[in-house]
Design a protein around this nucleic acid. Structure first.
Lengths: 354, 354
DNA sequence: CGCGAGTGTGGCACCGGTTCCACACGACCG
DNA sequence: CGGTCGTGTGGAACCGGTGCCACACTCGCG
């Protein structure tokens, strides 16, 4: 194992000078720097991050807390975060967080509490006050992307407004019998993504003076997966007499499952059922799904940018989002309604006379 | 920041005794251990992994190199790896590896070369000899899961045999006009997953005395995604006169895309086209897809078990795979053919007279 | 009773860097 | 011409643990 002292000896300088030459901090003559760098290259010297972290207290490592890896939105966010961190010379330590339980506590009380990460990015998870406190109490910035984190900076789309937009799209097409396939699970927090989308749906319906159709409030809960959407849609569409003419699904995956269920029930799409999703899934175009696009990969990049600024790290290329160089945590991230063939005006003859 | 010396002082012992008490190495009286542990709890002491790593040379951290996060197989593997590592008290540092290029070199020459991980798990990536050398030369074990890594231990299913099995299933049903939607990209390595599945297809066809149908060798390359399968299948099925009666797809995602393409072309499934996939995707059941199941989550666990053994870490619960306690790298991992509704006997009247 | 083995504890060097401080030297300035 | 400042360098402490070694004590055994 070659150490910096070996480099120093070979270059004929002291340890301190070698360190200065390699890190670029402090005064070193150009000539000396060159000699040190050459010596380092010659013996294949690679600095020990542990030793450096021990004294500087910085690890160049960011912890990412994420509940799923294998759902489209989360996978995209993760890839976006990873690429951006890597480009900044940071490592990414992954914590695939269960929703609750001892494993979750262990992540916060043990893994994240140690001096192994400089900051934490929490993706789509509702953190408790205690959890935020544990991290911030140790001087580590924490950025929430989606989900909630009491007291911590939060980056998010306007879930409520976007859900409203999706619902209004259906209303504008002339639909009056509209149901919502809402995301289940972890939706207890009032400000959770699921709750906000539900609220946006209700907003639009109320304003249009429409009564949601089906279950209480026209809402059926679905796990946010394709099979979850399938199961929920079977339930929602089970009785032809009470069928909605349109569905707003809380995620594209739910929407795909609902499309499948409708096919299975022999319904023609979009003739007898319009569906709008949420996410901008990579398969949405292929299946002609109208959806609210968000851009998870970009969101991941933004989250990293925010963390870098909080760490006082010069990010260079990224354009500052606000004049003071800090990201604007109040302005929601971009979303966009993309209309495709899964939504259309309701068929002329209503299924049920009114 | 509380250090172990604070704990020692509070407990009235020396640093060394405190260290022994907390790590469980060496002699400490039960009474002393109790006092130290209490003192540590009282002041909220958490050991610095950096300091420990510096002297022990072990980081309790494993690097995972993976080309995609957002494809089902890889996402599952990653979740399996993560859970198992976490249970073992290890961190997981994620390197989302491009197929080639300067970024990739940087991962190996900088990130993985430093003393920050104890071992590397390479998932579904074909490593060069140099890359393996860089890691192993620094004394870090490397385990390949799928993909290839010259000279390194490898854990994999029998891709060739499984592909053959899938193809034979179609042949047994009576199909004679069979095509293969092969995985494209990174398939250059002769032992790559894509090449092996292709070979298995060819094996079965040859043995049955059948000529593949369509493009050269009855093979059309597809990106291993749903849209990739869609595009490739459109091409393959474009001309009714030369259509196969069955398709073996190199992944379930390709198969889903192909199913979509067939629908789009107005073909009835499985009446006019049988499709068998590969992976055991979580949506396979919903879409009635016959497939070769593999168990990526379990594979991830096995890869971690293997790494733990190579690190001499007592894994405890996991049953030893071979008597000598080392995993059996020669025995392929489990796969299983699951027959669903996407495959059936060819329709009585062949589309084309022969 | 003497000796060796087993147990329990403290002192200290060390892992590999960074950084503070002292010091040397030349230039510039009043 | 003496003092100050900017630049360049080396020495040494320090980050927070681990582990080797020395030492003390107890116990069993010949």
């Amino acid at each position: 194992m070659t150490a910096i002292s070996d480099v120093a000896r070979l270059a004929g300088v002291s340890k301190s000078t070698a360190s200065r030459a390699l890190t670029g901090r402090g005064y070193v003559s150009e000539e000396t720097r060159r000699r040190v760098v050459e010596a380092a290259a010659e013996i294949g010297y690679i600095a020990s991050p542990n030793a450096a972290s021990l004294v500087t207290g910085r690890t160049k490592n960011v912890g990412v807390v994420i509940p799923f890896v294998n759902r489209w939105f989360f996978g995209e966010v993760l890839e976006g975060i990873e690429r951006t961190l890597l480009a900044a010379g940071y490592d990414l330590t992954l914590y695939n967080l269960a929703l609750a339980g001892p494993e979750r506590d262990r992540v916060f009380d043990f893994f994240l509490a140690r001096k192994r990460v400089d900051a934490v990015i929490a993706v789509g998870v509702d953190l408790t006050e205690r959890e935020v406190e544990v991290i911030e109490g140790r001087g580590k910035p924490i950025v929430a992307l989606g989900g909630t984190a009491p007291g911590a900076p939060r980056l998010a789309i306007d879930d409520r407004g976007s859900a409203r937009l999706a619902t209004e799209h259906l209303i504008d097409l002339g639909h009056e019998r509209i149901a919502h396939l809402a995301g289940a699970g972890a939706g207890s927090a009032a400000r959770s993504v699921q709750a906000l989308r539900r609220a946006g749906f209700a907003d639009a319906m109320r304003e249009a003076g429409l009564r949601p159709v089906g279950e209480p409030d026209g809402i059926v809960e679905a796990e946010m997966t394709v099979p979850g959407g399938y199961v929920a849609a079977l339930q929602l569409l089970g009785h032809p007499a009470t069928r909605p003419s349109a569905i707003f699904a809380a995620s594209d995956e739910i929407a795909f499952g609902a499309m499948r269920a409708a096919e299975r029930l022999g319904m023609s799409l979009p003739g007898s059922l319009s569906i709008v999703g949420f996410d901008g899934h990579e398969h949405a175009e292929l299946f002609g799904l109208t959806t609210i696009e968000q851009f998870p990969r970009v969101q991941g990049r933004f989250a990293v940018d925010a963390v870098m600024r909080l760490l006082g790290e010069p990010t260079g290329d990224a354009d500052p989002i606000t004049p003071d160089g800090l990201p604007d945590f109040d302005r929601p991230l971009d979303t966009r309604l993309v209309v495709r063939s899964s939504t259309t005006a309701p068929s002329a003859r209503p299924l049920v006379a009114r």
